[in-house]
Write a protein that binds this DNA or RNA. Structure first.
Lengths: 359, 359
DNA sequence: TTGAAAGCGTTACCAT
DNA sequence: ATGGTAACGCTTTCAA
C-alpha cells in the first residue's frame, strides 16, 4: 500500500493525500478526516526511502564510535547516553545510526558519511584534547554536537558537557579541607579530554593553597575495577601511602575498595575514597549503592540534550553560525554520603548540590 | 556531485557510469577505468537514499532494544555485541539502526518498522521465555535473528546463543564434585530466557545426583555488584550458609567477593565463587582480571555471527524457510583459574574447554 | 559496449 | 481546496 494506491482508493490525487497526512492547512477538514481514516484502516506508512529522497533529508543522526579496539564502546555510560538520545529521535521521527570507525581513518569515514548523505548530523563521542574531528566536521559542513569538549580546539562548536574541572576541584578541596595532603588521583585514559579537565581541577585545588600533588599518586588508564585495585594495593604498600583516593569512575572505586579490604584497611577510617561517576558529575563515598544505577538518569539526560540540540541545529541551519547559546554545561553535582561500615573516625558530612557556580 | 554530473563530465550516460561503478561485466575495461578514476578524483559517492529507493533495499539492519526503563541497554555486554555486529555491517555496506522501543508496544513498533521499510531485517535482543516478538516477526515476514533463544516458542527461527544450561550444569557439577552441597545461585532477571536456562542447568546437576537445591539460596534480579554483595551478606549470615556461589555475571561476583571480605571470609578457602560472565560462557573463580575485558572477544564474536547470519538470510530469502543450518549455538567455555590471595585450602584445578559436547 | 527512458514513492511547485 | 507534473538520484529494462 503506497501513496498512489491509497489515493486511487479514495478517488483523490496523491498530492492531496500527502497534504492531508502531513498536516497541510489547505486541505478540507472532511477530506483530511477521510484520508486519515483510510490510512489507518489500510495501515499505510509512507516509504521512508522515498520520503528521504524527495525531501533531501535523511531523517537520521549518526553516532560515530571511535573503535580503538579498547575503551569507549565498552563504556557502560555509552549505552545510557544512547538510550537518552534514542528517546528524542523516536519522538521526532529520526533514526539513530551507529557507525563504528577504526580510529585510523576518521577523515575518510566522515567524508563518506557526508557524501553519501545518509545522516543529517552527527554526535561526536569521546573527544580527545585537540580532537581533529571538530575541524573536519566544520569543513564538511555536517551539523554536529560533541558529547564533551576538546581542549585546544579554537573553533566554536556545540557541545554538552559536565563541568569536570570544577567537579574535581571541589572534590579535592573537600579532601584538603579535611586535612588530607597525600591524595591519589585515578584518572581516565590520557589524551581523553575529560581526563585532562579532571586533572586540571585536581591540580588547581592544590595550587590554590600553595601545595603540589605528588605525581606518583596520579595515574591514568582504563577505568576498570582492576585499575583501582592494583593502584590501591600498590600505593597503600608504599612508605608514604595516600590517605585518600579520588577515582574517575565507580568501577575504579570498587577496585580501590577491594584493595582496602585485602590490606585490612577500612574505608572512611583509614582511607577516604571519592568517586566520580563517569562523566556524570556524581561523587559519592564508596559504592554502597548498585553500580551504574545512580548515574543512569544523568547520562540519559546528556543523551537527550545532545540529541535535541542537534535536531534544533538541523531545523534552523543559521543557528550553526551562532553557537554560543547551543552549548550546555551541566554543572557537576556533589553527592557525598556517609560511608558505610563501622562509624568512621572522621565522619563525612553531606555536601550540598553545587548550583549556579561560575565556570 | 551526482551520477548525472559525473556522466556529463565524462561524456557518458548515467547508465554506463552506474554500470561501471557497480561492477557490471558488460562495460569496457577502458571505460570502467576512466569512470573509476573520475569518481575517485571528484569524490563521488552515490546518494544512499536514491540507491535505496531504486533498489528497494534499505541497506540497514535494525537493532531493537526493549526499553523497560531498566536492564538490558545498561548491560555492558550490549555495547560489545554492537561493536561486533558493526564490523560486519561496515564491511557489507549496511547501516546499523538502533531502535529503542518501550516494552508496551512491541507490536506497533515492529509493524511500523516493516511498513516504513527502513530496515531489511532485525536483530532481536534480550529474548524472554515465550517472547511474542518471534511470532510477530514471522507474521510480518521481516527477516530476523535472535541473540539468545526463547523457550516455549515453537516456531523455527535463526539464533545465536551460548549453551547456558550446559554451562551452568557443568559449573554446578564442578562444585558438587568438590563436595559442595549448599550452593547459592545468583541469577539474572526472572523471565529472561538466559536466566531460565541457567537455572535449568543448575537444577539438572542436582537432580542427576538425586539432590535438590535449596530454593532460598536461589535469587533472581539485576546482575549488579549490589545484588552480589547483599545476597552474600544475607546468605552467609544465616544458620546454614552456602559454601559456594554461582553468579550469573562478573559484577555480581565482585559484589559477593566484597561481601566475603566484609564478613572476614576468604574466597577459595571458606567459600567458592564461580562466575558466569554475561552470556559468554566464561566461568572463572573470582575476579582477578579486569571487569568486562575477558568477555569482550566473545560478545563481539556473537555480534558478528548474528549480523552475518542475518545478512545471509537477506541475501538468500529461501534460506528463511530452512532455518536449521542458520542457528548457531556457541558452546560454553569453562575457564576456572586458581583463586587469588593466600593459597586456598581447597585448590581449584584448571578446567579445560568444553568442546564438542552434545546439546 | 553504450544509451534512452521508465520506474522507485514521495514531496513541491504551479495551475485551476 | 484539489490535481497535474516535475523533481529527487539512482537502477534496470529494452533498444541500438
Amino acid at each position: 500500500m503506497n501513496l498512489k494506491d491509497l489515493a486511487d482508493l479514495l478517488g483523490l490525487s496523491p498530492t492531496t493525500v500527502s497534504r492531508a497526512l502531513n498536516g497541510f492547512p489547505e486541505v478540507a477538514e472532511a477530506t483530511r478526516k477521510r484520508v486519515e481514516e483510510a490510512a489507518q484502516l489500510h495501515h499505510y506508512r509512507p516509504n521512508t526511502q522515498a520520503k528521504r529522497l524527495a525531501t533531501g533529508r535523511a531523517m537520521a543522526i549518526g553516532h560515530v564510535i571511535p573503535l580503538c579496539s579498547q575503551h569507549e564502546i565498552v563504556n557502560p555510560v555509552f549505552a545510557d547516553f544512547i538510550a537518552g538520545a534514542g528517546e528524542v529521535y523516536a519522538r521526532e521521527g529520526y533514526d539513530m545510526v551507529l557507525i563504528s570507525v577504526p580510529v585510523e581513518d576518521h577523515a575518510q569515514a566522515y567524508r563518506e558519511l557526508r557524501a553519501k548523505r545518509n545522516v543529517d548530523g552527527v554526535i561526536v563521542h569521546a573527544p580527545r584534547a585537540g580532537d581533529g574531528r571538530i575541524a573536519l566536521l566544520h569543513e564538511l559542513g555536517l551539523p554536529f554536537v560533541v558529547h564533551g569538549r576538546a581542549s585546544g580546539v579554537d573553533l566554536p562548536y556545540a557541545y554538552v558537557d559536565v563541568n569536570n574541572a570544577r567537579a574535581f576541584e571541589r572534590a579535592t578541596n573537600f579532601l584538603l579541607d579535611l586535612g588530607h595532603r597525600r591524595i591519589a588521583l585515578l584518572n581516565g585514559v590520557e589524551g581523553m579530554d575529560f581526563a585532562l579537565r579532571r586533572q586540571r581541577g585536581f591540580a588547581r585545588a592544590f595550587a590554590a593553597r600553595g601545595l603540589e600533588p605528588d605525581p606518583s599518586l596520579m595515574i591514568a588508564g582504563e577505568m576498570t575495577e582492576a585499575q583501582g585495585h592494583d593502584a590501591a594495593c600498590d600505593m597503600l604498600r608504599r612508605a608514604d601511602p595516600p590517605t585518600a583516593f579520588i577515582t574517575a569512575s565507580l568501577l575504579s572505586a570498587v577496585g580501590v575498595r577491594r584493595g582496602l579490604w585485602e590490606l585490612g584497611l577500612r574505608m572512611g577510617r583509614d582511607v577516604s575514597i571519592l568517586t566520580h561517576d563517569d562523566e556524570l558529575g556524581y561523587f559519592r563515598n564508596g559504592a554502597e549503592e548498585p553500580i551504574f544505577t545512580a548515574t543512569r538518569a544523568s547520562v540519559r539526560e546528556a543523551g537527550r540534550r545532545c540529541a535535541s540540540l542537534l535536531l534544533d541545529m538541523i531545523a534552523t541551519p543559521d543557528m550553526a553560525t551562532d553557537m554560543a547559546p547551543a552549548t550546555q554545561l551541566m554543572e557537576a553535582v556533589l553527592v557525598l554520603g556517609a560511608s558505610t561500615g563501622p562509624a568512621p573516625d572522621r565522619s563525612v558530612p553531606p555536601m550540598t548540590t553545587a548550583q549556579g557556580l561560575p565556570l
